[in-house]
Design a protein around this nucleic acid. Structure first.
Lengths: 148, 148
DNA sequence: ATCATCACTTGAATCGTTCAAGAAAATCCG
DNA sequence: CGGATTTTCTTGAACGATTCAAGTGATGAT
């Protein structure tokens, strides 16, 4: 109904993908909700755009990920999350207290962390970094976690 | 039956854990099979030591992980894997072709990667790095993956 | 406008992992 | 050493995120 984001359409087409309402809607939702899990994205699309099957969302997310339009992340012990910030090789901090995720720019330069000291003969093309810690809120709420 | 590794017993006790045959057996299996998944560890323990329930293995792995005796890793799209090399802050390379995992020593120093440029107020205590690429075998087998 | 192809809907299945209750073993302590 | 207490293990079922499968509907090319 609403042909809302012509540039989103464009991006899909440029990536060699067919343009469907569902793909535009999901891509838009990932844009608006960085680090959202699949469930949240389903809810968002249904609220903002209209009916969609959960299977379609899983499908679209897989396709968008393979096309490089979104990035999938999944810290230990959490469900998969998605973001639209791709290609800039940034990383993530995860709060041990509340699970909040924030973006972190790499400290090491433009092609960061791609130079492992000895990769055992592996040809490395990507470095994925996850920092673990506590967010400001959780830090002040409970200064020390591992009590007696 | 076999009181095989007195030092393993010791480590468990030092970590404040009770010593059971199952814990010793699982810890030993993790030592011998770095980066093994739970299923492999269950098989290994049953072969080398004797009967054990899969639930016990899950339980023991959780306890050992919480105690810091083993480390759990789980690259995107794979099941959980465990290793006994802890405390040295090393990282991992995962092969996109066959899923093989290898250890990689950090290139940045002794307390590596803990200095993100701007962590948004997070207090960081650990950096987890996963490199993606292709192992020697997969590299030579199929020089370029993303064909057409 | 027509058609072949690809995407979505619907509904069920899968897999690793976790929950729950009772039996067995490990530590504590006299 | 022997019993009490607590923790851990066994057994069997349940869970939840994700995926599979078959059929219907939309997309883009001719």
């Amino acid at each position: 109904m609403i042909p809302p984001a012509p540039h989103l359409e464009h991006e899909l087409r440029e990536a060699g993908l067919r343009v469907t309402q569902q793909r535009v809607a999901v891509l838009d939702a990932v844009r608006r909700l960085p680090h959202a899990d699949t469930e949240s994205l389903i809810t968002a699309v249904r609220t903002e755009t209209g009916e969609i099957s959960h299977q379609a969302v899983y499908d679209v997310l897989r396709v968008l990920t393979e096309a490089g339009l979104v990035r999938k992340i999944q810290p230990l012990g959490t469900v998969a999350r998605y973001e639209s910030r791709v290609g800039d090789n940034h990383h993530h901090v995860v709060c041990r207290g509340c699970g909040a995720i924030a973006d972190v720019d790499c400290a090491v330069g433009d092609t960061p962390c791609l130079t492992a000291s000895d990769a055992g003969g592996f040809v490395i093309d990507e470095a994925e970094v996850i920092y673990w810690g506590r967010c400001p809120a959780c830090t002040s709420a409970r200064p020390v976690l591992t009590a007696p």
